[in-house]
Amino acid sequence: MADLSLPPLTVPTVPGPRDGADPAGAQHDERLSVPAWWWVAGLGPTLILAAEVHMGSPGVQAWLPYVVLVPLVVWLIARYGRMRVQVTEGELRVGQAHLPLDVVARAAAVPASAKRAALGRQLDPSAFVQHRSFVPTMVLLVLDDPDDPTPYWLLSTRHPQRLLGALRAGGVTVVDGAGSPA
């Protein structure tokens, strides 16, 4: 009788951003997803509210809050936690915005202890800010573009040193807190 067994199946693996290599050539790729407790804090009260309406209303009105409120809260939390910070081939992408690295004069990390000051009185109203309250650290990018009135970008990142390393590899001068090259 002939052997009808199949050879072992081998699945080629494509390295992803977590493996250190991105097929699209990303030098830095980070998703600023919300913490897990946000899901509990958002869905818990929503389900309680929907249950209260369910107990007090007959018919269609009983299940309508589950159909409307729960997907709405899931959509809001998921949307807020989908911002990506990427450095790819001479360009920085933050959410929908993108910035060529050749217009960045210098970059620096903003530690958690200086975040409040950077977003408070020191914030220039014409700066581009992508802030996520659940991310403690930020990166400041000072621009040198005469055609753009934006003086700097201030963006949240969980891994400022990795982002600064990718920016340095792209030709951006990275400085420390005192303003000297890092």
Results as ranks from 00 to 15, higher is better:
Q130R: 11
A112W: 14
I77H: 07
H131S: 11
V110P: 03
V40K: 01
E91R: 03
H159D: 14
P100N: 06
L99W: 05
R84N: 14
L123G: 01
L32T: 06
V73G: 03
L32F: 06
K115L: 11
Q122M: 06
G56L: 12
T157G: 11
T88K: 04
A107T: 09
H159Q: 15
D124Y: 01
H131I: 08
A166W: 02
D124N: 07
P151R: 04
A107M: 11
M55L: 13
P146N: 12
T157W: 12
W153R: 00
P65M: 10
W39H: 03
L32S: 02
V103A: 03
A127I: 04
G165R: 06
G42Y: 05
M138E: 10
G44I: 10
A78M: 11
P160D: 15
D147K: 02
E30K: 07
L123E: 08
V103I: 04
P111V: 10
V87C: 00
A51N: 12
G44W: 09
Q122T: 00
S156P: 11
L72F: 15
A51E: 15
V104G: 00
Q96E: 14
I77M: 09
A112G: 09
A117Y: 00
G81W: 11
T137S: 06
R162C: 08
T137I: 05
R82E: 15
I48A: 14
L154A: 06
D102V: 05
W38I: 03
M138W: 07
A36E: 13
G44F: 08
K115F: 05
P35N: 07
P149N: 03
Y80R: 14
L167M: 05
L164T: 00
P160A: 13
G81T: 05
H98P: 02
R162E: 15
D147A: 02
L123K: 01
G170R: 01
Q161R: 07
L141A: 03
S113T: 13
A50V: 10
A166V: 14
